[in-house]
Structures are given as structure tokens and as C-alpha cells.
Design a protein around this nucleic acid. Structure first.
Length: 823
RNA sequence: GCGGCGGUGGUGGAAUCGGUAUACACGAUGGCCUCAAAAGCCAUUGCCCGUGAGGGCUUGCGGGUUCGAGUCCCGCCCGCCGCACCA
């Protein structure tokens, strides 16, 4: 007799065929009595084959989706591809393979793998962002934003890679260098398209309170928005009669301003210096500063540099004339591009004042009245300090003075309360081929003209040459570029830049609700039915950009009365990275584990379970080959148990009044139901402990069998193990359940706990003396406190430790312990 | 510098409400099965003392609250992540 072995290559395709043939995971938009649940993992970027991170994301999401379904929810769990983007284009430049071809090849690999992994996807809603049927609506949304003034074109300083001949997104610039080729980036002035996300800064900040996201992601979003409250204060240059507003968060230190600094890019710098003795020096300084790389410029350790402008401005609170400088530590992009410098209360101003021998005047002192040492005066601002040498504001607390001085400025017309943000408008233009074309034409007569909705999509033309030449490769497709003006019918030229791929992924979750609609981006009722996403799952690397942009889109679309939600993702889960030998997996390090190899060798169930068992899914975890084998052994143990018990005589029922090994096993089974249910319920992601509980149950089955448990109890325990394991190992879960019951586990409701079986007649009472465990005794379940205390006092080792001393206190925690306090 | 998260056996980790610290797994050691190997099964496994019963110690460090602290409070140390010349 040849013994059969656990063979996932046989079991897994069998169940995958059933699910595919029966379209098991498809869900209709028609509401029924069940509540809805929209479970979504971030869509993959199809480049090459799926990697281990994908396996983790979709294993987590699938567990959530399955658990929800079996708890009575109607679950939307779709899939798509974020298909446009730079890697496919780079590959095209290198190999000549058109981006569409490479991308679609990769999409096929993802489709194949998702099926091989057994992920429960509603394939009927599949989409890809490079499909004209999809990006037609990306363009449509662009036009809606344009109509509302939320998409606009302006000249701006952008990051330019001189080697790759293209503009780079901020996120592609690492420490002032091009992420791709490593060369230092330059700043160029170019006309670009922007989305006015800054209009939404406050709402994006405030609404973080209404969504349930991990605190660190909220923090990152808050930092990124960077809201600062303060005041705008106007300083006047009397010689030229020009007012210069500055932003400050410390209006209370206004009397301490001893000089004034402008950014090198400030448009008035040359005009101010003109005709002064410093004119030449200013030109030299500004030219040098603007050529500096972002890296050099941004170095906080760098000594402060700058030159005088030879002019002064007067301080609105006291009329004092203070000298003006130009210095590169002031940034044009933030505030007004000019600052009042208060060296006593700002580290940077302090450093500059020291370097240039400028006066340092302390105007705020700690409430104790004692002045701290000069070089720490600016540290530790709490609002409790009080003002000195500040005219009639002297004596006010710092917090009071902020308000009082701002009020005074307002009344005098010299300033007002103001808020500044770090957040910048979203630059969406890319001088690249493989992206969504911007639906705009330029007409000499009419200027910027939007392509009418009826002419969408503006399809991406085929080109031969994808190499960047300092302009979008699309510019070479002359036939495509030349068009007629939709407004006057005259000659016009198309916009040749494409959109940032983050635009594509900022609304895909809406399209899933109604992905084949060719009359509209979505049907409002369908979106109302499913949105918001109840559980969103993905990597932390998208904590800022993608998640901020998607929130912005939803808010903007809601403002246009196209949506009924304010936030796209009600709950967010960010999974940790899988590393190997402590390092991020990468081809160059040669430490890559391919999910394909693991699935081939051990099966998808092992791969998925291992990834969920390795540790809390939000933490990084290091891959271990022996850990995988351990999980595989566990699954094989369950399979072997199920087949062996299935071979035993037929329909023995679960005993009505179980005893002995049967009772022990049923108790363990209900303990496992309870444990797994609590580990997955209430939005918990404790897959590792849930799987551990099923392991304990399987171990208990083996022990019960040795102890003579009956087939009825064993069948129930094994079927339950399969049922509880199903969200993590769907194939084996279904197989074990079918072997035991003949039924389909996914059609069964989630198992229910029999509370009566969680309770025991007796339990182990812990006996402590002075808080230390000295003995354990059996105690009856319902015993009164007095009885428990007596049991504890009677325990032999307790008596040894009490040793005739006085028991001054007895702490009784029924169901757990008794603690005797002796002296 | 600002903000966030974390530190538990040889390893990954567990402890959900202040109540038996180290579940589950990996690794290791011993044994069974076998001609042998693989696979499987059984047992032991935080550290120290002890033949044993048992005792002592242990959740980064130092204090505190409590009958009782991995968990709460105060002060440190270390690590990771985000932001950062943002006025």
C-alpha cells in the first residue's frame, strides 16, 4: 500500500476550477438584505512577475474578504492594474519592447498568479488604467477639475534630470539626485499642469479625525500638509515705497526682529539692490544660489551665507529700520519668500546673525523672569513665556501677545492672522510617453482649449522612439499633435505631456463599482452602494502620496456633486515589508524569494499561511525557509488527519453528551472558534495568533485520537479546523471540510461558539503568597470567594510559605487566583 | 530639531481589561520506526542552583503606584520610520 501525501498541486487547482466555473466571488450591485463590505488592496503596478510583497498584500486582503463573507456580508473584492508608468517606458528604451506589450505581458503574469494563489477576486470588474475605456474617464475627471479651476497651468521651478532629459516628480528625487541615473538634478522653469490640492489642505487635515487609519499614517499626512498658524506682517521699504509681507508663527517676537531676509529667487531682489554698492555682489550671490543643487541648498549643517541688499525696511510695531539681506536659507516656495529675522528666538536667524555680526535682541523670557543663556534663548518655546522690551505689549504672556499683536497689526492695516501650509499643489505633467494624455489643445487664437467630452478618449498614439529628448516623446508624433481647435476649428496642437500615474490610481476604487459603464465614469447609485472602501490594505510607502491624492479626488468630486462620500477609505491597514537576512529583497543583493517558486514547491496555502503566521502583518518580517517548512508540515498534518478520519467508518454523529477525550476535544474546538473569531473580528488583523490557534486544535486532534476520541467528535473538530483555516488556506480548508462533511465551506456561515463548552467544571486556581505563585489547585467553577481562599490556604506549598505568619489580606480573583498577603 | 512607533528565550513571536510571562512555530537535544535514509511520531528545551522536591532570577536601564506591573506613572538608554534651513 502506497501512502498518499499532502499534494497541493492536486488539491489547489481542483478548487480553483470550481471557483472560476461558478464565478463564486462575483457580486452584483443589487442590494439585498446583507450589509455591504468593500474590501480592497492597493492595485498592483504590473512590472515583471508578482513579488513576495504582493503575496502578502493579497493574502491579508483575502483573509479579510473571506471572513466578512462568512459573517454575512456582501463583499466587493475586485482587482485591477496600475498599468501606466515609468518602468515600462524605461524598459522600452532599453529593449525596444513597446510599453504596452511589456505591461500586458506582466498583467497576464499577475492574473495567472492571483488565480494560482486562490485569491477570491470578482474578476467581472477587472480594470487596467492603460485601457482607453478606463483613461477616457481619467481625462473626463481632468476636465471637470479644469472647469472648476482645480486644474491649472503655470510656470514653475521643477526638478530636471540633465541625463535622462526629463522632469522628475519630487518623489523621484532622492537627496537631490535622480533616482534612476544618480546624477544631480537641476531646477528649471517650465510651464506645467497642476492640481489645486492646496485648496483642500484644511479639509484633508480635519477629516483625518473621521477615518480610522493607523496613527503613523495620520502623522505622516499631517506632517506633509504642515499647517502653521501665525500672522502675515507687512514691512515697508520707504525708499522704493514697496510693502513686503512676511509670514511668521511668532508674531509675539516682532520687537526682536533685527534684520530682514529675502530668498534668492524673490522677484524684487535685483530691483532692490540696483544702484546700491552691493548690486554686483547680489547678482553674483543669487546666480550662485539658484544653481546650487537641492542637496547643497538643503543641508542644515551648512554655514549661513548671504549678502546685504543695501536697503532697509521698517518694523510696523516700532518703526525701526532694519537692514535687508538676501540669503539662501530663505525659501521662495514657503510663505512670501521673505522673512523677518528674530535671532534671539530662531536658530537659523541666530546662526545668520552670528555669522554677520548682527544684533540679537531677546524679547521673550521664561515666566520665571530669568533669562536663559544667549545661545539657547530660542529653544523650548511653550507659550508660557512673557514679553520684555516690547512696547506696550511688554508683560503679556507669549500666547496673549500673539493675539494682541496680530489684532493691533490688523487694526493698523499692517498685517493679519494667517495660516501657511507645507503642502504644494500637485504637479501632474510628465514629459513621458507611457501615461494618460492630458485632454487639452493649444490654439493660437483661443489659447488653452479643453477637448470636449464627446471627443474622449484622447488616445495615446503609437510611437517608435520612447527615448526622452528634453520633451515628451509624444511631441514627435506630429500627425497626432496637429489637430483642430474644438472652439474655432482652426489649427491647434495637442498637449504632449502625459499625466502623473498617481492621477490614474486616485479614482480606480470608484470605477470598480461600475467598471464597464461606457456612458459615464460611474453610476452614482452604484458608487453610493459600495463606497466608501470599508477596509483598504497596502504598503506604508503610499502613506502620503497616493492616499493624499485619492482623498483629494474624492473631496473634489463630492464638491462637484458627483459623489456622496467625503473620504475614500474608512479603514486603512498598512502591511510591513518582508525582508530576507534583515535586508530589503532586491535582485542586486541576490536575496529575492519568488512567490512562484514557493507556491510550486509548497503550494499556495503554505505560502499564504506562512506569510500570515510569521508575525503581526503590520510589522516587517524576515523570511525564513525553515519557517515555511514548519507551516507546510502543519498543513500536511491537517490533511493527513482529515484523510485518515474520512477513511474511518461513516456517519458517526457528534455525541450529545460527550465525555472524556470527546469532551476535551469539543472544548478545544470551541476554544479555537472563539479565539480565531476574536482575532479576526472588530477589524483585528491577528492572523498569526489565529493560525496558532488552529495549530493547537490540530495538535489536540492528534492527542484526542491517541486518547480514544470517537470519529464523530474528530470529524467535527477537523471540519472546524478546515473552516477556521479557510480564510488563510482556502484550498486545504475547503478540502478538509469537504472530506469531513461533504459540504462547501464557503457556503457555510462562520462557526459559532457554544459558550457552554468554553466553561469547565473545575479550573486551575493559582495560589500566590505575597504575589508569588506557590501552588496550583483544582477549584470548582462556581466556588465562592471564601471557598477559594480556603482552598488556597490549604495548598501544601502555600502553607510552607505562610509558615505560621499572619495573613493580613486575601485577594481573591474568581476564575484566576488567590493572593495571600502575609507579614 | 519636530512627530510617530518599538525594545520579551538561541530565533520569529504570544500574553485582547493590572492577575499563572514566554502560547504557537523555528532551531536544538534525546528517543521510536527503518537494513539504511527520507518522511513521520514521542519527549525535553528561558537562565542559574539542586540527584530530587524545590528555590532564586528574568520582559532595554533606574525609580514609583499596587496585594499583584511586560502592561499604568516619572526619568533615562537604544533602535526603526516620517518630516525638516517650512520662518
Amino acid at each position: 500500500m502506497t501512502e498518499r501525501r499532502y499534494d497541493p498541486a492536486e488539491i489547489e487547482p481542483k478548487w480553483q476550477r470550481v471557483w472560476a466555473q461558478e464565478h463564486t466571488w462575483e457580486v452584483s450591485n443589487e442590494p439585498d438584505e446583507r450589509p455591504k463590505a468593500y474590501v480592497l488592496e492597493m492595485l498592483p503596478y504590473p512590472s515583471g512577475e508578482p513579488h513576495i510583497g504582493h503575496l502578502k498584500t493579497y493574502s491579508v486582503g483575502d483573509a479579510v474578504a473571506h471572513f466578512r463573507r462568512r459573517n454575512g456580508y456582501r463583499v466587493l473584492h475586485p482587482m485591477g492594474y496600475d498599468a501606466f508608468g515609468l518602468p515600462a517606458e524605461n524598459n522600452a528604451i532599453k529593449t525596444g519592447q513597446p510599453p504596452r506589450e511589456a505591461t500586458e505581458e506582466s498583467i497576464r503574469a499577475f492574473q495567472r498568479e492571483f488565480r494560482a494563489w486562490g485569491i477570491s477576486i470578482d474578476w467581472s470588474r477587472e480594470l487596467s488604467t492603460h485601457d482607453p475605456a478606463y483613461y477616457r474617464w481619467t481625462q473626463w475627471i481632468f476636465l471637470r477639475l479644469y472647469e472648476r479651476g482645480l486644474a491649472y497651468r503655470k510656470e514653475a521651478a521643477v526638478q530636471w534630470c540633465p541625463v535622462d532629459q526629463t522632469v522628475l516628480a519630487n518623489e523621484q528625487v532622492i537627496d537631490g539626485h535622480c533616482e534612476r541615473c544618480g546624477s544631480p538634478v537641476e531646477v528649471r522653469q517650465l510651464e506645467q499642469w497642476f492640481f489645486r490640492i492646496t485648496d483642500y489642505a484644511d479639509r484633508l487635515l480635519e477629516d483625518l479625525a473621521v477615518i480610522s487609519w493607523p496613527e503613523h499614517v495620520n502623522t505622516m499626512q499631517r506632517n506633509w500638509i504642515g499647517r502653521s498658524e501665525g500672522a502675515e506682517v507687512t514691512f515697508r521699504n520707504d525708499e522704493l515705497g514697496i510693502d513686503y509681507p512676511v509670514f511668521t508663527t511668532r508674531p509675539d517676537t516682532l520687537f526682536g526682529a533685527t534684520f530682514f531676509v529675502m530668498a534668492p529667487e524673490h522677484p524684487d531682489v535685483f530691483r532692490l539692490a540696483a544702484g546700491t554698492e552691493h548690486e554686483r555682489a547680489v547678482h553674483e550671490y543669487v546666480n550662485r544660489a539658484v544653481q546650487e543643487s537641492a542637496e547643497e541648498r538643503g543641508d542644515t549643517d551648512k554655514a549661513k551665507t548671504g549678502v546685504p541688499l543695501g536697503r532697509t525696511v521698517s518694523n510696523p510695531v516700532n518703526g525701526e529700520r532694519i537692514p535687508m539681506f538676501v540669503a539662501d536659507y530663505v525659501l521662495m516656495e514657503y510663505g512670501t519668500g521673505a522673512i523677518m529675522a528674530v535671532p534671539a528666538h530662531d536658530q537659523r536667524d541666530f546662526d545668520f546673525a552670528r555669522a554677520f555680526g548682527l544684533p540679537i535682541r531677546q524679547v521673550v523670557v521664561p515666566a520665571t523672569g530669568e533669562a536663559p543663556p544667549e545661545d539657547t534663548a530660542f529653544a523650548g518655546h511653550t507659550g508660557d513665556e512673557s514679553l520684555v522690551d516690547s512696547g506696550h505689549f511688554t508683560g503679556l504672556s507669549s500666547t496673549e501677545a500673539k493675539l494682541a499683536i496680530t489684532d493691533w497689526l490688523d487694526r493698523e492695516g499692517r498685517g493679519h492672522a494667517s495660516v501657511n501650509y507645507r503642502l504644494r499643489d500637485w504637479l501632474i505633467s510628465r514629459q513621458r510617453y507611457w501615461g494618460c494624455p492630458i485632454p487639452i489643445v493649444y490654439c493660437e487664437r483661443c489659447g488653452i482649449v479643453p477637448v470636449p467630452d464627446s471627443e474622449l478618449p484622447v488616445e495615446l498614439p503609437e510611437v517608435d522612439d520612447y527615448a526622452p529628448r528634453g520633451r515628451s516623446p509624444l511631441a514627435a508624433a506630429e500627425d497626432w499633435v496637429r489637430t483642430r481647435c474644438p472652439s474655432c476649428g482652426g489649427e491647434a496642437r495637442r498637449e504632449t505631456d502625459t499625466m502623473d500615474t498617481f492621477v490614474d490610481s486616485s479614482w480606480y476604487f470608484l470605477r470598480y463599482c461600475d467598471s464597464h459603464n461606457d456612458a459615464a465614469a460611474w453610476d452614482r447609485a452604484a458608487v453610493r452602494e459600495w463606497m466608501p472602501v470599508d477596509q483598504y490594505i497596502g504598503g506604508v510607502e503610499h502613506a502620503i502620496l497616493h492616499l493624499m491624492y485619492a482623498r483629494f479626488f474624492v473631496k473634489a468630486l463630492a464638491d462637484m456633486d458627483l459623489l456622496d462620500v467625503q473620504e475614500p477609505f474608512a479603514r486603512l491597514f498598512t502591511q510591513g515589508m518582508i525582508t530576507r537576512q534583515g535586508a530589503k529583497m532586491s535582485k542586486s543583493k541576490g536575496n529575492v524569494v519568488s512567490p512562484q517558486t514557493i507556491v510550486e514547491r509548497f503550494g499556495a496555502d503554505t505560502a499564504r499561511c506562512y506569510i500570515l503566521f510569521i508575525g503581526p502583518p503590520d510589522h516587517d518580517a524576515d523570511w525564513s525557509d525553515s519557517g515555511v517548512e514548519g507551516v507546510h508540515r502543519f498543513l500536511a498534518r491537517l490533511w493527513r488527519l482529515a484523510t485518515e478520519v474520512a477513511a474511518q467508518s461513516g456517519a458517526e454523529p457528534v455525541p450529545d453528551t460527550p465525555a472524556g477525550a470527546d469532551l476535551e476535544l469539543l472544548r478545544k474546538t470551541h476554544w479555537a472558534i472563539d479565539k480565531v473569531t476574536r482575532d479576526l473580528g472588530g477589524g483585528r488583523f491577528a492572523f498569526n495568533t489565529a493560525i496558532a490557534a488552529v495549530m493547537e486544535l490540530v495538535n489536540a486532534c492528534y492527542a484526542a485520537r491517541r486518547a480514544g476520541a470517537g470519529v464523530g467528535a474528530l470529524r467535527f473538530a477537523i471540519a472546524t479546523a478546515g473552516s477556521l483555516l479557510f480564510p488563510f488556506a482556502p484550498h486545504l480548508g475547503a478540502e478538509a471540510y469537504e472530506l469531513m462533511t461533504g459540504g462547501r465551506v464557503w457556503e457555510q456561515p462562520w462557526p459559532e461558539v457554544d459558550e457552554a463548552l468554553l466553561e469547565r467544571d473545575t479550573y486551575e486556581l493559582v495560589c500566590q503568597v505575597n504575589g508569588r505563585v506557590r501552588d496550583r489547585v483544582d477549584a470548582p467553577a462556581g466556588a465562592a470567594q471564601e471557598e477559594l481562599a480556603a482552598l488556597c490556604r490549604a495548598a501544601p506549598n502555600v502553607q510552607a510559605h505562610v509558615d505560621g505568619r499572619d495573613v493580613v489580606k486575601e485577594v481573591v480573583v474568581p476564575g484566576r487566583l488567590v493572593n495571600l498577603v502575609v507579614r
